[in-house]
């Protein structure tokens, strides 16, 4: 078994007095693909955002690659990290959003090179060559010079995946990457994600695409009301879950 890349212990997140995450724990190994399913409002996005430090957690702890997120340990003290240190920790993790969030003033190529050139300080030539490779990998060689507004939703999401990969992350988080797409565009994005999974990328994917979860995921977690109610091998959770509400949810989505 490969080493653990993401470890979440008792992660708790509150919005004023509403508990969005209630002691969520999860271990993700290198190269593992985990899907998170569950009804709307159950805390799936919030959990991903905590792993990428877009939300600050109120309890528990998350490690990525052995590094404690948000804090530096000095003896028996935990010191809160400063903004630029948090930014540095985030570089290990890529994120793909439901609504793409491509930079509209940059072309597809520039969207991918923006981080490598300005954050990682890569040489422009090298970054562009890498970006072209990535765009070819997601099937968009002919769209490098296009602005997001000139691309379909599926194409935009594939650029967003290339943008995340441009940072050479160890982990990519996907928050319902196909939910904003027209039905006929879903498969082109799922295919790219499947390729990525096969190449060994560690992925945590919030999705309602049960077919994708069944064929690509190693692990599936079912969340409800801020808690992980069931987690295990994809086959087990999707076909024969112990939790009754998980079974009902899977049945409902399959209809």
């Amino acid at each position: 078994m490969s080493e653990i890349l993401v470890k979440a212990i008792d992660v708790t997140k509150r919005f004023s007095n509403f508990t969005a995450l209630d002691r969520v724990g999860m271990d993700i190994r290198k190269g593992e693909v985990a899907c998170i399913i569950g009804p709307s409002g159950s805390g799936k996005s919030t959990f991903l955002r905590c792993i990428n430090m877009l939300e600050r957690i109120d309890g528990g702890a998350i490690w990525v690659g052995g590094e404690l997120l948000g804090y530096r340990r000095q003896g028996d003290e935990l010191h809160e990290l400063r903004d630029h240190e948090i930014a540095r920790q985030r570089r290990r993790t890529g994120m793909v959003f439901q609504r793409f969030n491509l930079f509209p003033h940059l072309t597809a190529l520039e969207n991918v090179t923006e981080g490598p050139i300005h954050v990682l300080k890569e040489d422009r030539k090298a970054a562009e060559a890498h970006a072209r490779d990535l765009l070819a990998r997601v099937g968009l060689s002919d769209k490098v010079g296009h602005y997001p507004s000139e691309l379909s939703g599926g194409q935009q999401q594939r650029v967003a995946i290339a943008r995340a990969m441009g940072m050479r992350p160890e982990l990519i988080l996907f928050d319902e990457p196909t939910s904003a797409l027209d039905p006929e565009l879903v498969s082109e994005v799922l295919d790219v994600m499947k390729d990525l999974a096969e190449s060994g990328m560690t992925m945590i994917v919030v999705t309602h695409e049960m077919g994708f979860a069944r064929s690509v995921a190693d692990t599936v977690a079912f969340m409800e009301s801020g808690r992980i109610e069931e987690i295990g091998p994809a086959e087990k959770v999707l076909s024969d879950p112990d939790n009754a509400r998980c079974a009902a949810f899977v049945r409902a989505v399959h209809k």
Binding site: N52, A87, R88, F97, R99, N101, M167
Partner: peptide, 27 residues
């Protein structure tokens, strides 16, 4: 500027100033 732009900029590891200069102000 849409809040998703701020999040996408943070997600690629940008700090506050770089995000303002490269992503937010141009839009």
């Amino acid at each position: 500027v849409d809040s998703g732009q701020y999040e996408a900029a943070r997600a690629i590891g940008m700090g506050q100033l770089l995000m303002l200069r490269r992503i937010v102000l141009p839009q």
